[in-house]
Amino acid sequence: MAETFQYGSLKNEVVTIPPGRGQPPYQHGGQPAPNSAVGQIQWMAPPPSIPGCPPGLEYLTQLDQILVHQQVELFEAFTGIETQNRYQIKNALGQQVFFAFEESELCMRLCCGPGRGFTMHVVNNLNQEVLRMVRPFQCCSGCCWCAGSCDHCSRTIAIESPPGQPIGHVRQRGSSWKAHYEILDANMDPVLKIRGPCWFCQGVCCTCDVDFKVLSLDEDHEVGNITKQWAGFAKECFTKADNFGIQFPMDLDVKMKATLLGALILIEFMFYEQKKNKNNRY
């Protein structure tokens, strides 16, 4: 029996998010309750269980593209006080696949801004936690020049499915000006690399998308990409709600697909969470 998630706990139980945190209240059988205020959300049909696939990640076996939409936080937009991030994760048809919500301490958000440590809980359409991303707080880290010389200077995030069972890691690497990451498996062995552009911006005069290329280990083949999409003038200028997309081969290992989702979250915090909050530097 899944229990209601209590903010501030880091237990390994299957969790559900309470009504009002981006998901509708559920009735018996896992269907949205009648007259739900957000019952109009389109859900991707759950696939059957697949041997060897972490429970709940079967959705990813049917996808070669994921869309991630950060939800607008009105309280944060009006007050400037950092709130916990929430994301809708959809397929190419706009059907919701997962919902992700951050767990972090208020003091950490206020003092450390985008450099904060957090746990990102990812739940399926039955409100069951199927994926967990853990980013530790790392003081004096994140510089692309220093990340290659010392692991303590590298931003990292661990991906777990089920919660408590590591399936992959993302680690920042030194690369001079460019954003550079390694995608690692559960044993910390490199599998893929991510290379960002040397310089990028988005604004009123620059509305193009920004691509972070997913490459093979030898960097000779482009496997996919993580794209920061232009979200529109109002959202880009007045909020920190960003839109992203991931493309990868349909037959890519489902654990690596989930790890690329973790890479997207790390990139979002490192490059886009801070841009409209100039008081936060790391």
Rank of each mutant, 00 (worst) to 15 (best):
Q96I: 01
D64V: 00
L93W: 05
G80T: 12
A45V: 09
L63K: 04
N91S: 03
G56Y: 08
I66V: 09
V97M: 04
Y87L: 03
A45Q: 14
Q95T: 02
E76S: 13
A77G: 05
F99D: 02
Q70K: 04
Q88L: 02
T83F: 14
F101N: 07
F101S: 12
L67D: 14
G56L: 11
I89H: 01
K90H: 07
G94A: 02
T61A: 12
C53I: 15
F78I: 08
P55Y: 14
Q62R: 15
Q71G: 05
M44W: 08
Q88W: 04
R86C: 02
D64C: 02
F99C: 01
Q65F: 14
F99M: 03
K90L: 14
I89S: 00
A100K: 00
I41V: 13
L67P: 08
T61H: 11
G52R: 07
E82M: 14
Y59Q: 08
G56V: 06
Q40V: 13
E73P: 04
Q71N: 10
T61I: 08
Q42P: 11
R86K: 10
P51M: 12
F75V: 07
P51F: 14
Q96R: 13
G80F: 13
I66Y: 01
L74I: 03
K90F: 05
G94E: 02
V68P: 05
F101G: 07
L63M: 12
A100S: 00
G94Y: 03
R86Q: 09
D64T: 00
I89C: 00
I50H: 03
P51A: 13
P46W: 12
Q95Y: 06
R86F: 00
G80I: 06
K90T: 06
L74C: 06
E76I: 02
P51G: 05
Q95A: 09
Q84T: 04
G94I: 03
Q95L: 04
G94Q: 03
Q70Y: 04
L63Y: 11
L74M: 06
G56K: 04
G80V: 08
F75E: 06
F75P: 01
H69Q: 06
L57T: 02
E58I: 11
Q62E: 13
V72F: 11
F78E: 05
Q88D: 13
Q62I: 05
F98R: 00
F78N: 10
P55R: 15
I66W: 05
K90P: 10
E58H: 06
A100I: 00
I66K: 01
I41N: 11
F99S: 02
A45H: 13
I81N: 13
R86G: 05
T61R: 09
G56I: 07
G56W: 03
N85L: 01
Q95P: 11
L74E: 14
P55M: 08
M44V: 08
D64S: 01
